[in-house]
Every structure is written in C-alpha cells, then in structure tokens.
Design a protein around this nucleic acid. Structure first.
Lengths: 336, 336
DNA sequence: TTGTAAGCGTTATCAA
DNA sequence: TTGATAACGCTTACAA
C-alpha cells in the first residue's frame, strides 16, 4: 500500500506538504506542487478515504433507504428512475451512494440510525414516507440530515414532492369530462402520504362536480398488479358498477387490464382507466394507458441536490414541489 | 460524539476491553461484558466504522458497477432484479452496498480503480461484461477482487452466468418446432458477451435444423424499445420477410409489438415473437409474450455470495451457471 | 512556503 | 482476564 509518506519521501517533502497538494492549497509553491504530483503519479497513489473521512468527519456518502417490501420497491419503475436521478447528482458532485435495503419498518429504523451513527453516511434520502413516520422522528432526534421524497409531516423536514393532490384532481376531472359519474379509486396503502394526497385530489374533483364520494368505490391494496386485479374484480362485481377506475399506480392499472380481460370487458368501451407514473410500458399495453406523468428523475436530482446543500451548510427550501402532467392515451372513453 | 473511551470510562475498564466486548471476544469475563454492554446502551454508543475499517483494512462494502449508458441500465428490469438479489445477501451478511454509476467505459474504469484504491470498497460486482473488457484487466492488475455477472473472458475471473447459448437454442428450437424457417434475431450490442452467446445459440439451433444463418435476418441495436421497433421494421421490409423474431431482451420484443401493430401485422398469426428475461410485463402485453426466464435474483445472490467468499479467503468456483427456462405464452403461432 | 507533531477512533501487540 | 501503548493513514494547528 502506498501512503502519503511514500509520496513525501519520493518528492523530498513532508507528509503535510503532500496533503496540502492533495487539497490544492494555495500555500504551496507551484514547483513543489508539480514535484509532488509527479511523485503521486509515479507511485500510482490514491489517498485512503477512510483515514481522510475519519479526520474530516465526513464520509461524502449519501444513503438511499429502500424500505418498502422488496418486491414492490424494486419492481416498481419508480425506483430505477429516482435512483438514476440521485446517482447523476452524487456522481457529478463527487459523493458516494450507499444503498440501505430493509424488509420492515423496525429494521429500517435500526439500519438507518446505525449507518449514520457509525459514520458510514453523512445523510439519508427517504422514499415513500408514511404518516407519523417513526424513522423521520428518529432521524430528527439524532440530528441526521435527510431529505424525504414525498410529503413529509414532521417540522424541520426537507422534502421533494410532486403535486399529488392536483395531479389526482386533474386525472379524475378528465374522467368527469368524459361523462363518467361512478369513478372508482384504486388506492395504495393508506399509510403512505402520497396515497392520502391522491385520495384527496380524487375527492375534491368529485365534490367540485357535485358527486358524493362513495366509500364502496374506494379500495386500498399493495402497489402490485395482483392487488390491482383483485380489487378491480371486487369493484366491478358491485352494482351499479363503476364506469371508470383511477389507479394511483400504473402497475395497479395493469392489474385492472387483467381483471377487465377476464371479466370480458373491453377498455375503454366498457371501462375507462387512468394510471399514475407513466411507466415505460404504459404506452405499450393495449389500449395504451392514460396516466399521470411525474418527473421522477428530476425529483431524484432535487433530492440529492438538497441533501448535499444541507450537508454543506446551505439552506435548501423546506419543500420543493414538481409539476406533473396528464398524458392522454387510449384507455378512456366517453360515457354515452 | 461518544467514543470507545467514553464507554470505557463509564464501565470502569480500558478502551481495549470495550473493543474486545465489541468483538465478543471469549477472553473477557461475563460480568465485565455485561457491564460494558450496559454502558454502551446507556450512552447509545455506535462504533465508528471509519476508524475500524482503517485498522482492519476492510470496509465491508461491495461496489456494484452500473456501466451501461444510464437509460438502458436503469430502465431494463434486469437491473432491479439483480440489485435485489445482491442486496439480500449484503444485508444478511452485514456488508454494505455502494453504487458506482458511470456514463462511459473510460469513466467506469477510473471510478472503479479509485473506489478500490481509496479503500471505499473491498471488491466489485460487474454487470454485462464486454469482450476484452478493459475494466476486468485493470481490476486484475491491481488485485481488486471482483465477480462478473455474465460470461467473463479473462483468466482468474470469477463469474455468475446463465446458460445463454442453451437458452437461445431452446427459444429458437421452439420456433422451429412450430414450422418457422425464416427466424430473425433481434440482438443487442455485439460487444456484450451475453449477446454473442445468444447469437451462438441461435445459429446452432438453425444449423441443427439444416437452415443456413442469413445475415440479413440478424440485427444489432440498443436494448431499448425504440431500437427493437426500428430494427423490426427493417427486418419486415425485406422479402421474403421473417415469420418469427427472437429478441434477446423483452424490452426489444415490446418494440417488435409496436412495429407489428404499425405495420398492421397481428401477433402471432402474422408474426411470432420470443423474448428474453421474463419482464414482469411480458404476461401483461397482448398477446402475452413467450420468453426465456432467467433466475436474475438468484444470480445476484450468487454474485454477492461469491464475492464475499473471495474476500473472506474462500475459494468460490470460477464459474457458476444457472439454468433458464422457456415460458411459453401466446406470442408464437404455427406456420401453416 | 514548508515541517513537526498531535490527534481522529478504532484494533492489535505485548505485557501484566 | 485485563491494560498500556503503538499503530492505521490522513489533516491540521503551530512553529519555523
């Protein structure tokens, strides 16, 4: 292992001088810098990051917490997109990205506190927060800097989010404008704030149209195709059945397609569907899926940016909201 | 910051004793252990990982290298699956997972060498190797332990792979058994070894059936829907046109669907399609896609397992091959 | 502009 | 069974 001492010896300077060259200090003469740099190159020297972090008290590493049960966390296209957005920033800002995967909320909290307390990460990015999120409270307690992707409830929180209420409002309004009156909501787990917000938007749109919200038309399940299918079957067995379904996630919407096909219903003639996320395959399915497109990658960018700001003493805004957009395709029809 | 010294003071022992308790050394008396543990708990003590790594010369961190251009690397469902497999193992074996994302081969090599030389990671997992992969050579040169997911060419390499040649052979044989004679291959970039292997299996199957390989029926492109569509259009414009297409990736196969629909061709009546990977949405598209299912998650498990073995002085097998399976759905028809 | 020396929080060596 | 003491490789006063 070649250390700073080896470089110092070869360049005929002291270790501290090498360290200063490493930091490009302006208190080192140009000729010395060059000599030291040549020595570094010759020895193929890389500074030991652990030693440096130990003393600077910064690991330059961000932790990304994947807390949802693995199957839905990984298979949902939301995940690669947000990851890509985050890694773009960490890479360009010379930060590292550590993945923290957990199976349940208890383990999640343990792991996160440990990662931070052990100085492995300088801060964390959390996805899909829940109401009264325990993790958020714990992190605040130990002064761990973090950014939440989604609506965060605690005070002193920093978050990146999209306009879920408005987005859901727009989606449901679209269905209303096509003449639908019995619009069902295929929702995810109630505990997630984004599900609550999309529910709110759904209710507001109906209310503004003078239509009461019927609880029999609102269902909750996991963000999976299976649950989407199962719940759709339940929704359509009712009488009078809904003529349209707004799913809070495209993957669930694909489950609607499955259920409709099994029940012999044709989309959009017999049933209209709107999804959420603009999954790459939303345009592939038959008929192509009308869905809300959110700038997931940009949210990842913003989250990483804000966390780094926080770590470097900046003061990012407490909340950063990105706009979504309804992408109209072929899955919605008019009610005659 | 509470350190080992604070714990030592509170428990009335020396720092080295605390360190031994941390390691659960059997040379410490039970009462002392309990006293020290109580002190740790009271102080909410977490050992500083950087300090520990510095002296033990092990970061207990694996690096996962994402080198393909970001768009295809992240959007392909292969990625979340392999990631999940890897993280399952790192989590249970108490290792960390660092993501190394790069945009091009040059940057890829720089980053990887740096991560290892700076002691940020103990070893690396590489995805989708190319022939004469420069990175593999560099890592070997600096003695960086690594595992390749895919077929690796260098000697001394350890790799996890699936039976690509056989899998492609089976897929094409399936089409042959349905009476197809003009079977096109929709291939990915030639430089990837998995593309070469699937090409080999394709050729062998044709050969064994006494059908010459026509270069006009073999196309290369990116592993994207767009390229799948574009190349399919080119394939089908020819005369005589292929009656079946074997795509080396489901995402490309979805592009075939798009092209067919635009050209007014019905799958499977006018065109048969076989994909690769068993993307979660292969069963969703209409008609559902016949595809080769590979145990991606298990490959991730194996890769992480082997790397950890390597790091802990074990001797994993140089190559570990997992079997794939053809999932027959509705996208292939008989030739009349 | 450069060097000396202390210290970051651990583990490891040796002695008691 | 435990405790001093010296590393690990770096940065950073403080001195020169």
């Amino acid at each position: 292992m070649t250390t700073i001492k080896d470089v110092a010896k070869l360049a005929n300077v002291s270790p501290s001088t090498v360290s200063r060259v490493l930091a490009d200090s302006n208190r080192i003469s140009q000729p010395t810098k060059e000599r030291v740099r040549k020595a570094m190159e010759e020895l193929d020297y890389y500074p030991n990051f652990l030693a440096r972090s130990l003393i600077t008290r910064a690991s330059r590493t961000l932790g990304l917490v994947l807390s949802r049960p693995a199957d839905s966390a990984f298979s949902n296209p939301f995940f690669p997109a947000i990851l890509r957005g985050i890694s773009q920033v960490t890479q360009s800002r010379q930060y590292n990205l550590l993945l923290v995967t957990t199976e349940n909320p208890v383990e999640e909290e343990e792991q996160c506190l440990r990662m931070f307390s052990e100085k492995r990460v300088d801060g964390l990015i959390l996805l899909t927060p829940r109401t009264n999120d325990l993790l958020i409270r714990s992190l605040t307690r130990v002064n761990c800097p973090f950014i939440v992707v989604g609506r965060a409830t605690g005070k002193g929180c920093h978050s990146v989010n999209n306009d879920n209420i408005k987005a859901a409002y727009t989606a449901v309004s679209h269905l209303l404008s096509l003449g639908h009156r019995r619009i069902a909501l295929l929702n995810g787990p109630e505990s997630y704030t984004f599900c609550q917000d999309r529910y709110l938007g759904y209710c507001q749109a109906l209310e503004d149209a003078g239509i009461p919200v019927e609880s029999r038309l609102v269902r909750h399940g996991a963000l999976t195709q299976e649950d989407g299918k199962k719940l759709t079957t339940l929704l359509l067995e009712q009488s009078p059945a809904p003529t349209a379904i707004f799913a809070v996630d495209d993957v669930m919407a694909f489950g609607v397609y499955k259920a409709a096909s099994e029940l012999g219903l044709t989309i959009p003639q017999d049933l209209s569907v709107v999804g959420f996320n603009d999954d790459p395959l939303a345009s592939m399915v038959e008929p192509s899926l009308t869905t809300v497109k959110i700038p997931i990658m940009e949210m990842g960018n913003a989250a990483a940016d804000m966390l780094i700001q926080l770590l470097e003493g900046g003061a990012p805004p407490p909340e950063f909201i990105l706009a979504s957009e309804l992408v109209i395709r072929a899955s919605c029809g008019k009610v005659l």
